[in-house]
């Protein structure tokens, strides 16, 4: 479910992507990169998303009038630290029917 690869390339991103307070980078509201325990992670796929609202009835009493309805969005994602996902080239030789693997850069 590699949705993101379908959607856009990281290198194409403009610097206008938002940075959240906890170090989350989002594009059009969808989180794509974040920092966790000092490491940078890239989000690779979106598993699910859901929304919840606050239990306003518990907040009655802290201020006058009706408490505001506050929404939270939750994302469940697969992510891996930057740099830990590598690009490889895998070669298959039709003549000898053998495989060969070597690391490579993304670009080409």
């Amino acid at each position: 479910m590699a949705i993101f690869e379908q959607m856009f390339e990281y290198s194409d991103l403009e610097p206008t992507a938002l940075t959240g307070a906890d170090g989350v980078v989002a594009h059009e509201g969808i989180p794509i990169e974040f920092f966790y325990k000092g490491r940078a992670f890239h989000v690779h796929s979106l598993l699910t998303k859901w929304k919840e609202t606050n239990p306003w009835w518990k907040q009655v009493g802290s201020s006058q009038g009706l408490p505001e309805v506050e929404e939270k969005i939750f994302w469940r994602v697969e992510a891996a630290p930057v740099g830990t996902v590598n690009t490889f080239e895998i070669e298959f030789n039709e003549a000898t029917k053998t495989w060969q693997v070597r690391p490579t850069s993304r670009g080409k």
């Binding site: 009655v60 009493g61 802290s62 201020s63 006058q64 009038g65 009706l66 408490p67």
Partner: peptide, 12 residues
């Protein structure tokens, strides 16, 4: 009628 609970109730 000025308690938060009552004002919330009235608002609702």
């Amino acid at each position: 009628l000025n308690t938060p609970m009552i004002t919330a109730a009235i608002a609702l």
